[in-house]
Every structure is written in C-alpha cells, then in structure tokens.
Design a protein around this nucleic acid. Structure first.
Length: 941
RNA sequence: GCAGGGGUAGCCAAGCCAGGUCAACGGCGAUAGACUCAAGAUCUAUUCCUGUAGAGGUUCGAGCGUUCGAAUCGCUCCCCCUGCACCA
C-alpha cells in the first residue's frame, strides 16, 4: 500500500481549528500548579519577518511542554504600541511612501483601507490582527487570545500611571537637565540605526567636546573645542580658518567668537545666547595672540584652513607634540614654533605626533587616511601607557586614562571651560532639517542609579533562573552600569501621559516593565467586566500590594487570578533586550512589587540573521515574509528548524535550503510512523528489551533538556536519535507489534511540543480521539531499563564497526568471520580491576594477589599475569560510562548467537562465534588470545 | 573609551562552565551503492592524512604553560562581532 503524502496545509488548518474550537489555549486555574510564560511583546512596526518567529516559537514549545507536564499554563500576548513605530508607519502612509503602499497592497489591503492607515491607531489595530491571525495562530501557538491587549488602551494607561505614582512615592523619579537629539521642526527625534525618524546619520554618536576658553587681549573669548582637554598643557598655538566669517556672541556676560554653525548649537544647549550681529573675519584673527587659560601662556593664532566651521566651535587648539594633524599643519605653516611635550609614553621619544607621522611617512595634511591612523595610534598608546609629565603642573605623573575627566571638571569648575555635545556625523531629520542636540533642563528620570534599588535588584537577580548562564553572570555589571533613564518626551508618539507633567508622554521602555501583570486584567477588560474608570489607584494597590479593601467581586476575582498566576516564570526575549528591557524589567519589579511577585526567570535568545551575519531587516530586502515561508515549508518544519538548527544562544543564518530539509524530515517522520504500523509480528526478547530501554534513556535526556530549556538537545533527540533507534531496531529484525505501537505512541507524544500539527495528525491516525496536546508527557521509567541488552547491542555494533574497518583496510571479501569472545576469567579479572580502581587501590600487585586467591585463575597464572599487567593503565583511561558497562554481567557469546542472523545478513558470509578458551577451536591466525571483554577478537578469511 | 559575545574540519553547527566516553553530536554539501524507465524522495556506506587486521599520525584562531592526559584550564597575542540609552 502506498503511504499517503503528508499534506501539511490541510493538517495545520484542521488542527488549529480544532484546538481553538476546543479552547485548549485558554488558561484556567485547575491544578494548583501553574506556569506563566510570555515573550517580550512585539512593537507594532509593520509586517514581521521569519526572524521574529524564533522567540515566539520557543515560547510556544516551552508552554506546550509545561502543559503536558501537568501545569496550568498562562501564555498571553500583547502589542507594544507605544513610541514611534506605528506613528512612523502612519506617516509613511500619509506621505504615500511607495515601498510602504506597495507592501500593503501586496498583503491584500485595498486603497480605501490604506488611506485609513495614515492614523497610527488604525495601524495598531490592523497589525494586531495581522500578528494574531497570520503569525501566531498560523504557527499553532496556544496563546490565551482572550487576554490580548496593547499599551495604548485606557486601562493600560491607568496601570502605567499607577506604576509612576509608586516610583514617585519611593523617590525613584528625579528631575535634572538632559541633552537629547532634537529637530527644530519636528521636536524630539530618535537617532538610531534603523533610522525611523531620520533620513541619515542614524549610526551617529554624541560626542562630548570640552570647550576651552582662550582669551584675546581685550578679554574676548576664543573658544576651542577638544576631545582631549588634558592636552591643554601642550598647546602652542590656535588654528583659525581665514576663510570663515566668525560671529561675536554674548554668553553669560562673556563675549565669544565662534562659527555661525556653532552659535546655533550653543543656543540649543546653553540657553542664554545673544547674537551681537558682529562679524569677525577669520583672517583678521590670524596673527593675533591669545592666552591659554589655567597656565596663562601667550600663544599665536595661526591660519588653518582645515578648521571646519561645522565642527564644534570652528576654532581649534594646536598640540603639535601629541596630535599628528597639528604637527603636520605646523610643519607646513613653517612657523618657528617648538612643540611642547606633555605626555611620557612608552615607545615614543619626545614627540609622539612627529614620530608617528614619520613612521607612516606622512608629509602633508592631505593624507587624511594616514593621519587618522597616526592619530589613532598616538591616542591609544598615550591613553593606555602614557602619563602627564612635568609640564603639567599639579597633574604631572598621573596616567592619561585617569586624568581626562579630572582636568575637564577642574576647568569647568573654574569657569575656564564648558561642554558642547555634537554628533559624530551629520544627522538629518525626515523633514530634511538638521538635527541638533537640545538641553532639556527639567527632564524626568527614573533613578536606576539608586544604590539601594541596584543592590536589591542584583540580589534578587541572583535568585532568578536566567538563560543563558553567561547572561546571568553579566547581570550584576549591567545593573551597576544602568544609569538614570529619561522617561518622558513631548512629541508625536504614542503612550501614557506622564502623571506629573501634562502633555508629556512616557517613553516606551519605561512603560513596558511590569506589563505581564496587565495580562491578568486584560481578560476582564476584554470581557467588559471592568472599565478603565474603575481601575483606580486603590484598585491597583489592592491587587498588587494587598492593601485596602475590594470594592466588588470582580476585584476579588482579579486579585485571586493575580495571586494564582503571578509571578512570571519565564520572560523570553531577543538579545537586543539584554541591556535595555530586561534590566528595567527586573528593577521596576523589585522597586514596586512585593518580592514574591517578582519575575522568576528570563530567557534570552539570539537572532536569525541574513547571509553575512546581518540582522534581518526589511529595508535590506532579505527577509522572507512569514506567510510565504509558512506556506512554502509548513509551520512544523519551521518550528523544528528554529529549535534544532542551532543553540538558542547563537545567531542563526536564514537559509531557505536548510529549512526545506526540515520540511522533508517532517514528511519522512510521518512516513516512517505510518509504515511502522504495518510491520509483521516478530519478537526478539533481547532486541525488544533494548528498544524499550533506549527509549527510556531518550525520555530522560529529553525531559532533562526541556527542564533546562535546551531545545536543541530536545529536538535532536526526538527528531534524529529516536528515528535512528527505531531504524536500528527494524534493521536488526525487530518487529514486536505491541512494542512498536508503544514506541510510536510515546514518540508522537514526545514530538508534540515541537511539531504539534504533525503529532495530532498521527495521533488521530492511530485511532485516538483526544488531543495529543493534552496528553501527559512521557516519563522515564527505570523499570524498563535493561542494561544487559543495551550492552549487548553495544557489543554488536562494536563488532560491526571493527569488522568493517578490517574489511576496508584489507579489501577482503569475507567468506567466514570468526568471533572469539573473551573467556570468563578475563571478565572476572577485568571486573576485579575496575572494582579496585573505584576504591582507588588499583595496581598490578594488588590485582595479582587477588587473582591468585582464586584457584581457577591460579591454574593459569602465566596468562593471568600477562593480561593483568596492562590492565591498570587501560582502566584508568576509561570513562565512567565504559567502566560501568564492564561491571554488568553479560554473556557475550549467548548474546551474539542471538544476533548471528543479523551478522550473516550484514556481511553475507558465515559467522562463527566461539569462546576464546574453548579447546580445539578454529584459529589459524592465532587471534583468539587478543579477545578482551566487550572486544572479541576477530578473524576474517 | 566602557561593557559583552565569538573564532571547531568543504559549509552550518554541538562540545568548553564540571579535562579523559573527542578525529570531535547533528545537519548541509560531496562521492559511491540500493530502490526507480527516469527524476525526486528514501535507505546504506564513505567524506583530515596514512595504512592489506580492528592501527598510527596531524587537527579545534596563534604561541607558551599546567597535567599522566587539553578543543576544554591559565597566560600572551591576532582576528571578527554586538550594545552603550530616549529605537524597540
């Protein structure tokens, strides 16, 4: 009979409908044994790609496993709608961005519908539906869909508002100045690599220049910007661009001269800047002198065309001994100025800049690449091994790596310097305006630097289950490093209004810290059992903190739900959350929630990348859409792919060919299982014992791996090793119908969490009517372990390996194979040796003494001593597993006799099995003496 | 700069924390064979080098070292990658 082909499309659809109709995905309180797992909910940013499904899949696999292990599982999900993404998406629709419109059309949106998506709220609504229907349900995730929610709903807003009141009560909200990217037209913008807000410059960094106030003879300030304030002691001259028209401005009662571009920057960062409408041409400054602050040295102002008005103040101080650019410029200016060396550093004589230029053969300012290299070289060396020398007054002798901030802070304290922040490269807003850095004098922060909070969080994290271990080990450092975070922003983005400042919105990281708690409420909100208005401060206090009195039965029900399900057992998220979301997740719980309601575990998974290790991104065009992939490969194949292709803790590269292979494997397993039920009846006690025994070993390994969330080991055992076992069993001639049925039943149950659709289909074919998804997961049964038969099969496979090896090397076509099993006395003495070794008493002398006390052994003392002589060395090399194997009493000859038929089949020749010490055996090559336990001697002819 | 991750055979990728079961799981690719009219799928064998008896040699970025024994531990070096804050 021809086996039916696996029709994954129908199978997936059928079973998903059945599961959801039967509501097996809904979390219920039944067993007094709960497991709460959720993934870091996705931001609503548009269509997702196959990379996103990795973590979601892990979550479902774990949730399904836990369900089968007898837990009430709560696996909810929601949408992070706060922040920019959905606003950004709506803007793209609004401005008719072609790529976006095409994409929407491709996904079946009509023109009329697309128009609606110019509203961010519609974007959230639309994509929430897409994520649920086309991704999560399509993958068979048993998410409790009655609890879906998002972060811009009225109830959620109340929840966040409560959280911020609590933070404020605990004095964890503070106000202080903050510098942030800002577009003069659009307000605050996000500068990040994905460039949602900006046209270019997304990977720009904010540099902190120190402006040092040099003074002209009339007291006017010539502000020079530097990243190395400690080099002030080595300044020999200033560079001013003769082609630039500088501006005169008033800054806090001081008169400054700087470039036009700088004036703008200062006005955003300093506040009280007054333009004096007086232009100072650069060439008029050239030739004048100015005073270096702090050391009061007079230096000349020289012409330097490279002083870029766009960078910092447009005025540069020159340190020719330590800056290769300055050195070359000075050489080319032909001015009789002596460099001043201020840093002693290994590997350089008295002028590092000069020496680096010579080393790299730099002779002109135009050799920019080489100059950058030289600069890098000098800076690195000086930073790591350099120290200020006697030219630096009270700072002399201090290492550069330690002095940087000190000099800067001292100068600022004395009002001789200021800080100017600037992007490392130009950033342009989507509106084409240049993005600046703006000072927000009274920004609100969550005080993550709070020592008590940090310490408590570290202590708490220590008690959590965090995967992988390397991440857990790093958490204390991350928490220490995690600084205060600005939490509000005024601009066009979604979120909860900050309760202490009207019109300002809480930023998205800060409104996603306690959110799994909201899944407890969302069910009641969705069922309209409670309204946002009823969710008062007292309400949340009652639920979370147990204070106050309930005002209704719904309050009591919700409280009982919260107490049942909380805390979260696993929060699962991608590695991008390591230093952002997870730290605040822990810290806010620790700050606000009672300790027994703080999260129990974190699971961090790595990414799916494109070829060349790039993170998959839509803009790079490499992402395979989820629906397309699901249709091409089937979701079980993808689920298996995610769990098996690599450890959860490494990036995996999306490769359609590999996924296709997993698809074939699914079909193959389907075929194998169907064929198994058609086998002819044939019993073989040894072999049957082996199969049930090895199956139990697999179960143990699988369950152990599951408990550690080691999903790769899980799927490798289930989908590869189990298949290998049953194939070996069949090949060896196994065919016990009852046993095969048992194996199949267990195998299907084992594979359910990873490939549930396949499992249900097979389960039904076996004639079962209930869902295999609701079956208990197989348990290890020590009574079904048969060590002797395991060892027997091991012995057999070793013999086959050895024989094949000999045949390969000698190129003999065998007519007869003689197997000489080790004599009983060798087994005895082997076992004695191992026992001695375990007592740590093994040496040849002791072993011989024991052996000789046995009259049977004494009779053949010569052979015994020869054999025993080599034993200690060999036994030491054995692993514990091997050693244990020798301790089991197996009748090798008997076992092999039972397997003789198989050996004859494999090698197509006569097989003779004898004991090596039998009298009169056929042994022309005198091989039999080499027989040792579990390693019979062989002779082939 | 600060913090973190990594370099394993043709490729992907386990192993490393707890040294010996490691010539190194598994997959892909390749080669040969079986099945097939054929293709695909599936199965079987081989896939670092040498070898007419189950062996030996050389490997896990490089180099030292610890050890009876190192892919695994320590030190030094080289190379790649990620995050660093208002993007989630």
């Amino acid at each position: 009979m021809e086996t039916k082909k696996y029709d994954y499309v129908t199978v997936e659809k059928t079973w998903q409908k059945k599961w959801f109709d039967a509501k097996i995905h809904i979390a219920e309180k039944k067993k007094q044994n709960k497991f709460f797992i959720h993934f870091a909910y996705p931001g609503v940013s548009g269509y997702l790609h196959v990379g996103h499904m990795r973590g979601f899949t892990y979550c479902d696999v774990i949730a399904r496993y836990k369900r089968m292990m007898g837990y009430d599982v709560l696996f909810p999900a929601g949408f992070h709608a706060s922040g920019i993404p959905s606003v950004g998406f709506a803007k793209k629709v609004e401005r008719n961005d072609k790529e976006t419109i095409d994409l929407l059309k491709k996904n079946g949106c009509t023109n009329d519908f697309i128009k609606k998506l110019a509203d961010p709220l519609e974007v959230v609504k639309y994509f929430s539906k897409v994520y649920v229907d086309e991704y999560w349900k399509r993958f068979g995730f048993l998410i409790d869909y009655t609890r879906l929610t998002n972060t811009i709903s009225a109830g959620y807003n109340k929840f966040i508002s409560w959280q911020f009141h609590k933070l404020n009560d605990k004095k964890l909200l503070v106000q202080k100045p903050h510098f942030a990217p800002y577009c003069p037209n659009c307000g605050p913008v996000a500068v990040d690599k994905s460039e949602t807000d900006v046209l270019c410059g997304g990977s720009s960094e904010i540099l902190e220049f120190t402006i040092i106030k040099f003074t002209l003879s009339n007291g006017t300030i010539l502000p020079a910007a530097t990243l190395r304030p400690e080099t002030i002691f080595g300044v020999t001259n200033m560079w001013v661009n003769p082609n630039v028209e500088y501006q005169k401005i008033e800054v806090n009662d001081e008169i400054w001269i700087c470039s036009e571009e700088c004036v703008k920057k200062l006005s955003y960062q300093f506040g009280n800047i007054k333009k004096l409408n007086e232009i100072v041409p650069g060439k008029k400054l050239v030739g004048k002198k100015c005073i270096v602050p702090e050391i009061n040295r007079e230096i000349p102002i020289l012409s330097g065309v490279f002083a870029d008005p766009k960078i910092a103040t447009g005025i540069v101080m020159s340190v020719p001994a330590h800056a290769p650019y300055d050195w070359i410029a000075l050489v080319e200016s032909k001015q009789p100025i002596q460099p001043i060396t201020i840093i002693d550093v290994k590997g350089f004589e008295d002028n590092p800049a000069k020496e680096a230029c010579e080393q790299l053969k730099i002779t002109s300012q135009t050799q920019i690449e080489k100059l950058d290299e030289a600069t890098d070289l000098v800076y690195k060396k000086e930073f790591h091994t350099g120290a200020l020398n006697d030219n630096c007054g009270s700072y002399s002798g201090i290492k550069i790596s330690e002095i940087k901030d000190t000099v800067k802070n001292d100068l600022i304290t004395e009002n001789l310097a200021a800080t100017l922040r600037e992007f490392s490269e130009e950033v342009i807003c989507r509106c084409k305006e240049k993005v600046v850095i703006k000072n927000i004098p009274d920004q609100w922060f969550i005080k993550y630097s709070d020592e008590t909070l940090t310490q408590n969080s570290k202590d708490y994290a220590e008690t959590m289950n965090i995967y992988p271990q390397e991440y857990k080990d790093g958490i204390p450092k991350i928490l220490d490093w995690f600084d205060d975070r600005a939490v509000i922003r005024k601009g066009s983005w979604l979120g909860t209004e900050f309760p202490f400042k009207k019109d300002w919105i809480i930023e998205p990281i800060s409104d996603s810290t306690l959110y799994p708690a909201y899944y407890i409420f969302s069910k009641y909100v969705n069922e309209e059992k409670i309204s946002a208005e009823e969710m008062t401060e007292e309400f949340f206090d009652y639920i979370f903190l147990g204070t106050g009195t309930p005002e209704s039965d719904v309050w009591r029900q919700i409280k009982s739900d919260f107490d049942y399900w909380y805390p979260v057992d696993i929060n699962l998220g991608g590695k991008e959350h390591k230093t952002v979301h997870f730290p605040v997740y822990i810290m806010n719980h620790v700050a606000v929630m009672p300790e027994d309601k703080c999260p129990r575990g974190l699971f961090v998974h790595w990414w799916v990348t494109q070829k060349g290790k790039e993170k998959i991104s839509k803009s790079k065009g490499g992402a395979e859409p989820i629906l397309e992939a699901a249709t091409t490969y089937g979701v079980d194949a993808m689920r298996l792919y995610y769990t098996h292709v690599g450890s959860p803790f490494v990036d995996i590269e999306w490769d359609p060919e590999i996924v296709a292979k997993y698809k074939k494997r699914i079909a193959n397993i389907y075929k194998i299982i169907l064929e198994l039920s058609e086998k002819k009846e044939q019993t073989n006690m040894h072999l049957d014992n082996w199969l049930i025994s090895i199956l139990n070993r697999r179960i143990k390994k699988i369950v152990d791996a599951f408990e550690n969330f080691d999903l790769r080991v899980v799927s490798n055992e289930i989908f590869f090793e189990c298949q290998r076992d049953i194939q070996w069993y069949l090949k060896r001639g196994g065919g016990d119908k009852t046993l095969i049925n048992k194996f199949v039943k267990i195998w299907i149950t084992l594979l359910t969490p990873v490939t549930p659709h396949l499992a249900e289909e097979l389960w039904q074919i076996l004639g079962k009517t209930a869902f295999v998804s609701n079956e208990p997961y197989p348990k290890f049964n020590s009574e079904e372990i048969h060590e002797r038969d395991e060892i027997g099969e091991y012995l057999l496979s070793e013999i086959i390996d050895d024989t094949s090896e000999i045949l390969k090397v000698t190129k003999i076509s065998p007519k007869k194979i003689c197997i000489y099993v080790a004599p009983a006395w060798k087994q005895d003495i082997f076992r004695k040796a191992i026992e001695l070794h375990m007592d740590n008493k093994l040496d040849v002398g002791v072993l011989m003494k024991q052996a000789m006390s046995d009259p049977n052994l004494k009779a053949m003392a010569k052979n015994v001593s020869q054999f025993a002589g080599k034993l200690p060395g060999e036994i030491k090399k054995l692993s514990e597993n091997d050693r244990n194997r020798y301790l089991v009493d197996v009748d090798e000859k008997d076992y092999l006799e039972h397997a003789k038929k198989y050996l004859v089949d494999v090698f197509s020749c006569d097989i003779e099995i004898v004991s090596a010490d039998e009298k009169g055996i056929y042994d022309p090559a005198n091989k039999s003496k080499f027989a040792v336990p579990l390693r019979p001697a062989l002779y082939i002819e």
